[in-house]
Nucleic acid binder design. Sequence first.
DNA 1: TTATTTACCGTAAACGATTTCGTAAACCTT
DNA 2: AAGGTTTACGAAATCGTTTACGGTAAATAA
Lengths: 339, 339
Amino acid sequence: MAKDARLIDIANALNISVTTVSRALNDKDDISQKTKAAVLEVADMLDYKPNRLAISLRKKKAFNVIGVVLPNVDHYFFSTVLKGVMSKAHLNNYLVIVGESSQDDLKEKEILDEFISYGVSGILIAPTKHSSFEANFAYLKQKRIPYVFMDRTYDEHDTSYVRSDDYHGAYQAVNHLIEKGYQRIAHIKSSDGWSIGTERAKGYRQALTDSGLTCYDELIKSSDTATKEDGYQLTSEFFSMDAPPDAIFTVTDDVASGVYEYAHQHQIDIPSQLGVVGFSNSVLSSILIPKLTTVEQLGEQMGETAFDYFFQIRKDKRHSFQKTFESKLIVRESSQRDK
Amino acid sequence: MAKDARLIDIANALNISVTTVSRALNDKDDISQKTKAAVLEVADMLDYKPNRLAISLRKKKAFNVIGVVLPNVDHYFFSTVLKGVMSKAHLNNYLVIVGESSQDDLKEKEILDEFISYGVSGILIAPTKHSSFEANFAYLKQKRIPYVFMDRTYDEHDTSYVRSDDYHGAYQAVNHLIEKGYQRIAHIKSSDGWSIGTERAKGYRQALTDSGLTCYDELIKSSDTATKEDGYQLTSEFFSMDAPPDAIFTVTDDVASGVYEYAHQHQIDIPSQLGVVGFSNSVLSSILIPKLTTVEQLGEQMGETAFDYFFQIRKDKRHSFQKTFESKLIVRESSQRDK
DNA sequence: TTATTTACCGTAAACGATTTCGTAAACCTT
DNA sequence: AAGGTTTACGAAATCGTTTACGGTAAATAA
């Protein structure tokens, strides 16, 4: 197995210095076209690949390594985000290192510190519910390390981000239920402090208001965990009310699956007696019976775009980019009253 | 922000050479207890953290970096494996770099090459369906880089691995169906060349044979993709037969969800008219209605163990370790005929 | 007493690249 | 022709650590 070619090998072959070779390969200007061409040819012949480790040490920066921090890698949405990042990273010859915060902002900070001391080229992060910008991210700016927020954003700061349009997604979802003739539409939101939860709740309220419907406080319940169990529990609370809702819009598909279970156990038919709309378009949504109407979240595309933004920032060293992915409503069976 | 302490800072503080400091910190023997203690104290005081990049260059090996290669990060099982690896890695101060082969053995090789040229300390890999040991992994041995197979294994070679006991899992699943009184038990297997598929099929056949039941070829169908769609399609084929099965054991939960859809559309009741057992214990299984009886696959534990094995191999430089995780049957509702 | 080992530590050369600084030659400019 | 600028390149330092090698002083052996 032949050893990898180094700069000095190219230099020796051409009787020039490593400095010149380095300049040629890095597109510096202090070099003649002729020499550069010669170097490139020999480099190609020797199948030269720059040594990441050496570059890293010299530059005090890991060469072409992007750090991704996610709350949970085994959560469907985040795993698709990761998939998107990885595909773009691979194309651009970047290595991807991942960390899982487990929704723990302290651990998140730990991971960030690790990544930074490793000298990653950039960071793509989906913050935990509780992360404060000041505590966990403010110092990234000083360190001049490019970073892009994913999913959850900090609007008061000028940062790059990709997220989904939770507000409009929720608005469409509820509006759709109204058009289908549902009257008492409830909402299971996520507990406060989680931006995606409040945005979705806002969209819910606005849709009702715009249609001239009243927005009853007792028809809004909060879930801390956004799990199936919470969905089941809160639905049971709804149905112990004097006037239960005839539709429920849930903050995630997982929560919706809890609604399904309760409905099934109590012979409440979906969608004729109870309309249900979820959020995420996760694998669940087309597996539940009846199939769940939901709002799609383009995790993979978000991941790809996040990487692209990082790449741009790194190149131009100035811009910050934002994109809010429009959330499309995927109408399936769970909201088709007239079906 | 104070700059990170280096060896030379410690050396200066104690008026000794960096060599000595290095020796002290690396537990070499050419050093007195007194000096070592002093170094350790100062190192602690200055909050010294070794510079990964420098060590990497000198050793020509990335310092404490483990590479994980998976067929699909957004597949539930693999994402739990990743989760397990990451938790152990974090505890041991390892960085995790990930690559996704997308079930493409060529891309898998590419990723491996990337990882190796980066000098990862070890590799944990869940091979694609088609990966040949010779083509993709044989050279890892020569490179003396520790590696552990996950999920899919190569029994003819003496390698380390973690996997689940597909054979016994399937055996239990089918045996359970028999005990519940099902008579014509069908199987949707995965297409050939994928070891987990053939093991599960073997378990299926053996359970039937051991109970004195005949194993009909027409009751076994192959799926290339192991998806819901295939499950639906193949179930419809089963039910166009003169004597359709009264139970189906599927190679994955995903496939089982296709069975559910067909059954629901054709008013076939699960479990009274059709028993169903899946494999994986993925999120689906407790969300399907009725809840799916399935065989659990301990992804997270497998990931943790894989990392532990890597760690052991690296330390002792000799052993290889194997573990087959016993696959436990999780009995839920879809197989309870007498329910 | 002299020779040899042992314990401990330092010097300097790596690892493979980038970068600072210097300089010789070529090219203008007046 | 003198002086200035540009072009193209090389020597050497540098990044932070490990390690081969050598040396000194004390301990032990002969």
